[in-house]
Design a protein around this nucleic acid. Sequence first.
DNA 1: TCCATATTTAACATACTTGTTAAATACAAA
DNA 2: TTTGTATTTAACAAGTATGTTAAATATGGA
Lengths: 118, 118
Amino acid sequence: MDTLSQTFSALADPTRRAILARLAIGAATVGELAEPFDMSLPAVSRHLRVLTDAGLIERHTEAQWRRCELRAEGLRAAADWIEEYRRFWEQQFDRLEAYLKRTAPQPKGKSDGRKRRS
Amino acid sequence: MDTLSQTFSALADPTRRAILARLAIGAATVGELAEPFDMSLPAVSRHLRVLTDAGLIERHTEAQWRRCELRAEGLRAAADWIEEYRRFWEQQFDRLEAYLKRTAPQPKGKSDGRKRRS
DNA sequence: TCCATATTTAACATACTTGTTAAATACAAA
DNA sequence: TTTGTATTTAACAAGTATGTTAAATATGGA
């Protein structure tokens, strides 16, 4: 699977996003990561494998623990991809703004033409 | 499925990303969108449904055609989510930079201390 | 009305995902 | 070496995704 697909696919699961959010606070072991979830340890372990394969986390063995840490760098390509589309939605916003400006009641009387609250 | 999962899931397929890229150029019919792919029309039609459900495209009926157009606004939440992690990878970059600065050969002789090409 | 064009829906096959439980593995400490 | 703790792998079930072909639907025009 291509890298981008793998990244987006890894992010398409709420458990995995929650794990990443937890790791943004700091490194943690598998057990610690699993604790908040109503899910077996093997299930969490598999989510961690998906995140590892996607390059979003790193695991180092420490005695019988695996310390997981965020590797947000793995998000960069996905961020860049989405970023390409930002101008489209911002353009959309500009169009809406322009429309509202056109259709808003015109200032009347001795107006200075400045914006005012609706 | 939650919105974010739906968005990332929709983006996790190269055909769908290619369709979005095509639509960034301009609106197109289903047939036009399908043309570059070695895939049946029903398969493309289903990809378009996934994109529609994720709010990434819009379809208007025009006679017997369905004109599809990009709705990049649907990417905003995903962009925001990823953005939260940007500081982590940029921090990482800063750390690398600091490391390189520490380990780089010190300027010697009558140096002005300015950066130079490696 | 009848036909051609554009697209979707139905029915199906295959593969992937994700969860479960039970067993295996790895290490630390008694 | 035996035991306890942490984690992964194996085997399985259920649900979801994605592609196929054939049939259905919708519209415009002869």
